[in-house]
Design a binder for these strands. Structure first.
Lengths: 217, 217
DNA sequence: TAATATTGTTAGATTAATCTAACAAATAAA
DNA sequence: TTTATTTGTTAGATTAATCTAACAATATTA
């Protein structure tokens, strides 16, 4: 059985390799993501290698093994199921679920995960629009396109967010945006890449940094 | 914020002082309850004393401070709410809930506890018949009487169990007993204290050890 | 390519929670 | 009241996860 800490390393590694636009996982990137020092990561990597959860040679690339990846996906699955539970059943808000799910994802009980999944009606996406891996570890890959990729005059639908921090999510709400909202891109300023959008008849301007964190179709 | 381990010490201390028939908490008793060595307990006790969670002098009695007790009760509250959730909402069986709740009780989020409480309809008792402390830490004290205290010919209702181990609970189910069942005490063997009971028309004999772990009114 | 900057690694220290082994105090038994 | 037993304590070691500081390898840039 893995420790809470080991699980977090696997999850971070998955995030860095699979997920977002990050190219490759390095000790530094991993360290900053986990808020520890590179030396600590190095140390842990050796342990995870011992357990055949990561492939890794000195000064080489770091990657999850099949076994490590399956375990990481399992944690993501739990995280997203719990987020869905908190949001749908307990009435937590969008920006509050992540933090609590960070704790709940480490609860060890296969039966619990299965029963929770069933209780929630086998949801496919979490409250942030991210896909929930199924029991076998299969993930529906989606949304590669962000609001940044929509040309002026274009229209799109928001399906997920990239950044799950409560700071960002609260900002999203403030702008009047929510999951599955229709967005019209009115204009894009060539000078500073400010994106002018219209949602539910309301216009606002958002930065390119903001636009990059909104997934659309 | 307390560590997972520290929380378990507080909980064990509460169990030993309040709960069951144990007289007083000692390093040995605490050690066997927590499955660690007395030396370890001693060590931890010093730390908890530093944090003003326990009162304790060398070779003297060990007791929770008001602060420590409040925290321990809070953990019990979470434990029993989660047990209720697992049983009522997810369909876990009687004997499965304890183990998972042991993990869930350590999740830190006041909001979560409140919302869970509300979601469950502010339950007063958990699936084993134990009272769920309210937010202020107040506990409905009940059931001091066990099946052992009912004289031959008498009748009673089972309201809780003392032993929460799955071994015992599975045995209870096998005997045909459940919470709120009416029990008739047919006879008590003077020789070996075997108790002959009748539940829902079915007769069985149980040991005094068994009978002592069934709370009745 | 040589100099500089970035990234990764090692060695050694620290803290929390645990252990074993030796010892001390309190309690029970003879 | 001695002796024996149980219970509690201390000292020193161990393991996991972390740190800092020094160093080594790789990558960037001039």
């Amino acid at each position: 059985m893995l420790s809470y800490t080991e699980e977090n390393y696997l999850k971070a590694l998955l995030k860095l390799t699979m997920d977002s636009g990050y190219k490759e996982a390095g000790t530094n990137g991993l360290a900053s993501l986990l808020a520890v020092k590179p030396a600590t990561v190095n140390n842990m990597l050796k342990k995870l290698k011992e357990k055949s959860l990561v492939d890794y040679e000195k000064y080489g690339k770091i990657a999850l093994t099949a076994k490590g990846k399956k375990m990481a996906i399992d944690i993501i699955r739990k995280h997203r199921l719990w987020e869905t539970f908190l949001y749908q059943k307990l009435g937590f808000s969008w920006d509050e679920v992540h933090e609590v799910a960070e704790q709940l994802e480490h609860i060890q009980s296969d039966k619990l995960v299965d029963k929770l999944d069933k209780f929630l009606g086998f949801p496919e996406f979490d409250p942030h629009g991210d896909p929930i891996p199924n029991k076998k570890g299969e993930i529906k890959v989606r949304h590669k396109k962000t609001l940044m990729d929509v040309p002026a005059g274009g229209s799109c639908k928001m399906v997920a967010v990239k950044d799950n921090s409560s700071t960002f999510l609260q900002y999203v709400v403030k702008v009047g945006l929510g999951l599955n909202d229709q967005i019209k891109v009115v204009a894009v300023q060539p000078y500073d890449a400010l994106v002018e959008i219209e949602v539910n008849g309301i216009r606002s301007s958002v930065s390119s940094k903001f636009a990059e964190n909104i997934f659309v179709v």
